[in-house]
């Protein structure tokens, strides 16, 4: 099966006054039709910038400085802005973390939704409105016909996020990038939204990239996982491989710090220190300053090892055995 999206050696750097920030540095992964890739990392790991790079929303001083983004064989990095606009919102869509920022507060929902329909399809207003209504119904918004006339502030947070998702789904995209869309929502609302996107991947064969720091959500959703740290993918593989037999010490640490993995009331395994500033990354493995396995060899560029087929990690001292 050919991949819907294949990212190869992607580099997105920001040229700031203080220096070059290598937000995404040599990142590669692929997502197949109907598959879910979990892109996991903490704040500042470059996971959101990776999403923005794919959909072509990197603003100066940021720039794609290398690598390719192959969408169904076509390199998005080389596409003109005009061609990219045909794909964005149409074949490739993105859901953002904050639904209040995605929606225009002074326009009614129908205006915003029909606008998105007209941008990509030549059709009548009545048809655009019908498509918008169906999309709202699909994400479980009750009485969608009436709700089309509402303004964003008349919706609750979870409803607003569902409207944002409905807009992303208007054209049944082949690739959907979801950037922490449920972080601000309650568990019950989160479950509703997870159920929606899951249906989309199975019914339409949409490839999904779910960006999050929450390993528990990823465990239930993803087929494959890529763990990012300081702009790099440090470990990637099938979800079960990465979660049950993590190889990289950072993945180990992340899994260990999830409360439910630990015995109640016992100390949580913690990763000492915090994520480094991307401005002044030490040479070699970026995690070595926080890593308990680090030795002097870690000042070199770590090699990529493959403990099992399709499961790779960048580390001099891969950990064997099961998850903590």
């Amino acid at each position: 099966m050919s991949a819907t999206l294949e990212v190869r050696n992607l580099r997105t750097h920001f040229f700031t006054r203080a220096g070059v920030v290598k937000a995404v540095d040599d990142v590669s992964f692929s997502v197949e039709r109907g598959q879910v890739l979990g892109l996991v990392g903490e704040s500042g790991s470059g996971k959101s910038v990776t999403g923005f790079s794919i959909i072509g929303l990197i603003d100066p001083p940021g720039r794609l400085t290398g690598g390719s983004i192959l969408y169904q064989g076509e390199d998005l990095a080389k596409l003109s802005e005009r061609d990219m606009r045909h794909l964005r919102g149409n074949r490739i869509a993105m859901i953002f973390q904050d639904p209040m920022m995605t929606l225009n507060p002074v326009l009614r929902i129908d205006t915003q939704m029909t606008e998105a329909v007209h941008a990509h399809v030549k059709t009548t207003n009545a048809d655009a409105r019908a498509r918008a209504r169906d999309a709202l119904g699909m994400v479980g918004i009750p009485s969608p016909e009436e709700r089309l006339n509402a303004y964003p502030h008349q919706f609750s947070g979870g409803m607003r996020q569902r409207v944002a998702i409905a807009i992303a789904l208007l054209h049944n995209p082949d690739l959907l990038i979801a950037d922490e869309p449920t972080t601000a929502l309650d568990v019950t609302i989160q479950a509703q939204i997870l159920a929606e996107v899951q249906k989309l991947t199975t019914d339409h064969g949409t490839a999904l990239i779910w960006i999050t720091h929450d390993l528990s959500v990823i465990a239930g959703l993803a087929d494959r996982i890529a763990v990012m740290y300081a702009g790099r993918v440090v470990e990637t593989g099938e979800a079960t491989d990465v979660l049950d037999h993590p190889v990289h010490p950072y993945t180990h640490g992340l899994i260990g710090s999830v409360p439910s993995r630990n015995k109640r009331g016992e100390r949580l395994r913690q990763i000492p220190g915090m994520t480094p500033s991307l401005l002044s990354l030490p040479p070699g493995c970026a995690f070595r300053t926080r890593c308990t396995h680090a030795t002097s060899v870690c000042e070199q560029e770590p090699p990529t090892s493959e403990p099992s087929p399709g499961h790779t990690a960048r580390c001099f001292h891969p950990i064997e055995g099961n998850a903590p």
Partner: peptide, 21 residues
């Protein structure tokens, strides 16, 4: 509420939703 909690032990599960808000 408890059935909706995502857990790291659970793999590739089907998500369902409590009806209503």
């Amino acid at each position: 509420l408890l059935s909706e909690v995502p857990r790291i032990e659970a793999r590739k599960r089907r998500f369902t939703a409590i009806k209503g808000e």
